[in-house]
C-alpha cells in the first residue's frame, strides 16, 4: 500500500484515510471505473486550465474542505486513491448548484461528476454513505411511497427550531390551515398535493424496473422494509380498486 501511495507523482495536499489505504487496489479501480463508465462522464469532463474559477465561485468551498477543481484534476490524473477516498465524504459537501458548470471555460461539470460519484457510492452501499444519509430517511420514505419529496407534516417545529417561532404557530391546527389553501389538490397534509393512487403505482413500477428498491435495500434495510410495507399495501388497494371497477362495469 505504502508503495502505491509513494508513486503518486503530484504533491496535492489531500490526505487519504487509513481505511482507503486498506482497501485492495483492484476494488478501488473497480469503483472508479464504475464512475468513468457512466455515459454522462464523457459529457462532464474535458480539459482543465487549472484556473480555479469553479472553486472560487463554489458555495461549498467557502465552508467545507471541498474544491470542484480537485474533482476535475483528480479524474484527469486518474488518482485512484484520492478519488476513492473522496467518494466517502468529500463529495457530499457539494451543493449541486452547478455554478462550477456555468463558469468553467472548458464546460467541465464538476457538480455532474459528483452526482455520478454519489450514485456509485450509494449503489455500492459504502458505510460512510449509509451514515451520511441516515438523517435523510424521512425524505426517502416520502418520495419512494408517494412520489412527493416534501409534505406539510414533515416540517415539524421540533426538527426546525432554528427556523424561528413562526414555525410553531404555522403547525398549530395544521389540517384546517392546509384545507384553507385555495386549490383542491393542495389541501393534503401527508403529501405536497394529493397524488392519485394510480400515479403512485406507476412510480413503484419505475422504482422496481430501474433498481431503486434494490439499491435502497442495500443502503438501509430497515427503511426498505418500512417502504415496502406501504408499497405493498397500496398495490393491494389498487388491485381491489381495479376489481371493484371491473365488477361495476360488468
Amino acid at each position: 500500500m505504502a508503495e502505491q501511495t509513494q508513486v503518486r507523482k503530484y504533491g496535492y495536499n489531500i490526505p487519504i484515510s487509513e481505511k482507503t489505504l486498506q482497501v485492495p487496489w483492484e476494488e478501488k479501480v473497480r469503483v472508479i471505473e464504475e464512475v468513468k463508465s457512466d455515459f454522462r462522464f464523457k459529457e462532464y469532463l474535458f480539459g482543465c486550465l487549472n484556473c480555479g474559477v469553479c472553486t472560487a465561485s463554489c458555495p461549498s468551498n467557502r465552508f467545507f474542505d471541498y474544491s470542484p477543481r480537485e474533482i476535475v484534476q483528480r479524474f484527469l490524473e486518474n488518482d485512484i486513491d484520492v478519488l476513492y477516498d473522496m467518494m466517502h465524504e468529500y463529495i457530499w459537501a457539494c451543493s449541486q448548484c452547478f455554478t462550477c458548470w456555468i463558469r468553467c471555460p472548458f464546460v467541465n461539470n464538476p457538480g455532474g461528476l459528483v452526482i455520478i460519484m454519489r450514485e456509485v457510492a450509494v449503489r455500492n452501499a459504502f458505510e460512510a454513505t449509509k451514515d451520511l444519509l441516515k438523517p435523510y430517511g424521512r425524505v426517502l420514505l416520502k418520495v419512494m411511497t408517494t412520489g412527493n419529496q416534501l409534505s406539510a407534516d414533515m416540517l415539524q417545529p421540533d426538527f426546525f427550531p432554528d427556523w424561528g417561532p413562526k414555525m410553531l404557530d404555522n403547525m398549530e391546527n395544521l389540517r384546517a390551515k392546509r384545507m384553507a389553501i385555495p386549490f383542491d389538490v393542495g389541501k393534503s397534509v401527508k403529501t405536497a398535493w394529493e397524488v392519485s393512487l394510480q400515479t403512485a403505482i406507476e412510480m413503484y413500477q419505475i422504482w422496481r424496473e430501474t433498481g431503486i428498491f434494490e439499491m435502497l435495500e442495500r443502503l438501509d434495510p430497515n427503511l426498505y422494509n418500512v417502504i415496502m410495507d406501504i408499497v405493498e399495501e397500496n398495490e393491494e388497494r389498487w388491485e381491489e380498486l381495479m376489481e371493484e371497477m371491473e365488477e361495476a362495469e360488468a
Binding site: 450514485e119 450509494v122 425524505v139 412520489g147 412527493n148 389538490v185 398535493w193 400515479t199 431503486i212 439499491m215
Partner: peptide, 17 residues
C-alpha cells in the same frame, strides 16, 4: 392529482436514483 414530483431534489440530495 395524476402527477408525480420529478424526484430530482432527492437525486441531487442523496444520489438515490
Amino acid at each position: 392529482p395524476h402527477q408525480t414530483s420529478c424526484t430530482a431534489w432527492n437525486y441531487h440530495g442523496s444520489g438515490t436514483s
